[in-house]
């Protein structure tokens, strides 16, 4: 008898006479199609110490250049629009870069899959313009570019849009901890600086 059989046998025994499960009430605000509030997103991002930049699509490159400054080493996923990257930085396109090189870079620039306005959350799904999970983890500065159609009002709409088969990273502000006297302090292991660019007029 395997442990699998033992455990499943125990559970079946424990469940004898267990009342059949009723329907799950889903009276909470669901995933209706409703427009997302960009001001709410910007406010909630800023509330958790992310830096928010709102610009027209044409201004993305200039905004990134201003955030990064000159002479920095920047990691980029292979599918990131090259036009976004300023000329006065050294760009490392990820083609399987070793972790040490990613960790030594000053910054990373990615797109995103979805953003949740109510919680101030961006979600990366490792598509070509976001790259492997490690890219947005090791550099101390993460610049993330959002298009307005990627922003949803609440968590249920984000779940409905995301593909669980992809590796997903939900990010709400820079790395933080509540472990010292239960107060939120920014900056532990993940990027200590998170800049979110909201490109207002679509792509």
């Amino acid at each position: 008898m395997t442990s699998r059989d033992v455990i499943l046998g125990r559970i079946r025994e424990a469940l004898r006479g267990y009342p059949a499960a009723g329907a799950v009430p889903r009276d909470y605000r669901g995933s209706d199609d409703e427009p997302a509030d960009m001001d709410l997103l910007a406010g909630r991002l800023a509330d958790y110490r992310a830096h928010v930049h709102r610009t027209a699509t044409i201004g993305i490159a200039a905004t990134i250049a201003r955030i990064l400054g000159d002479g920095r080493v920047v990691v980029a996923p292979p599918g990131l629009p090259l036009a976004w990257l300023p000329s006065r930085v050294e760009v490392l396109i990820d083609d399987g870069l070793p972790d040490e090189r990613i960790a030594a870079a000053d910054a990373v620039v990615t797109a995103a899959a979805v953003a949740v306005a109510e919680t101030g959350t961006i979600v990366l799904d490792a598509s070509a313009d976001q790259g492997r999970r490690v890219l947005s983890l090791l550099p101390d500065l993460h610049v993330c570019v959002l298009r307005p159609e990627q922003v949803v009002p609440r968590v249920p709409q984000a779940i409905a849009r995301l593909d669980p088969r992809r590796p997903l990273t939900w990010i709400s502000g820079p790395s933080a901890t509540s472990d010292i006297e239960l107060n939120r302090v920014e900056g532990v292991h993940g990027p200590r600086n998170l800049h979110v660019i909201i490109a207002e007029d679509g792509s």
């Binding site: 958790y48 949740v116 109510e118 919680t119 997903l168 990273t169 939900w170 709400s172 820079p174 993940g190």
Partner: peptide, 12 residues
């Protein structure tokens, strides 16, 4: 007590 915790990872 946060609207969302800083990081949630999901993998399949």
């Amino acid at each position: 007590g946060e609207r969302m915790n800083p990081y949630t990872s999901m993998w399949t």
